[in-house]
Amino acid sequence: MSLKYALYTGCTARESTPELLKSTMAVAEKLGIELVLLDEASCCGASHLQDFDDFLSLVLNARNICYAEKLELPMITICNTCQLNTALTKKRLDENPELKERVNEKLGEVGLEYRGTVSVRHFLYALIEDYGLENIKKKVTRPLSTINIAPFYGCHNIRPSELHHHFNRTKESPYMPTSLDDLIEALEGNSVDYEHKNRCCGFHVDLQAPKTANRLSGNALVDAIDNNADVMVTPCPLCHLNLDVKQHAAAKEVGREINLPVLHLPQLIGLALGCTPEELGLNHNVTDVTLV
């Protein structure tokens, strides 16, 4: 199987979560997937630029997609919020020729044109839909059978479901999502069922409403712990920042001691595929990962 994608890394993977980019590349190598980095791409605006200047955010996101189109490669993302903003841009432009023309008028000034020819999916769904869980299972060299793993889905991969279903063959339910659970099972781990797995971590109000953010993250972490989780896994680096880096603040807000390692999705996969802790950047996780 030869799979090749244009990887839109987003900003965090190149800054505060270097372990995400490292582990993504390590997993791709193990699975024989070729990733071409979109070094030209800019920030997606993270839903905040969208609050300030909607049209500008459309132009910038369309430009990012243009570079995947130039390579004629399907685009993949490794951040739920990058996925949301890129997918929202694509859907709006594809469905509204007048808007697409207005955006292309600007892109034309720098010699680019958005055509709408490539797909945009999160790495998680590309793995499931193109590579296949069965094939991942065959590559497992270190089964995670002794570990209880709590999947934390992250809002922007599952809601709004209409957008998600538009781009993915996996018709994930926003109420009872299963993709991460299925992946955990394929790695022979035990997936933990808990109420907060499809809830919000509060990342987007970290600065202006830290109490809200800490409360939401804390509630999710505590719920996972109370259901016997040894570790949490998330496909979103923004959720990861809240659940891992800010775990101490979240614990303080909810009045509980919390010490739960939180892995990025490719870190978990990499563990099962036999990657070394160094290859997965486990030393960058703030809450020590003591399972390995």
């Binding site: 900003c11 190149r14 800054e15 791409a41 800019s42 920030c43 605006g45 993270a46 905040h48 630029l49 609050d51 300030f52 200047d53 500008l56 910038l60 600065l207 202006q208």
Partner: peptide, 15 residues
């Protein structure tokens, strides 16, 4: 925070 994204993208492309 919202406006800062534009400032940062203007300077670095990334955030």
């Amino acid at each position: 925070h919202a406006v800062g994204f534009k400032k940062s993208i203007e300077k670095h492309g990334l955030l």
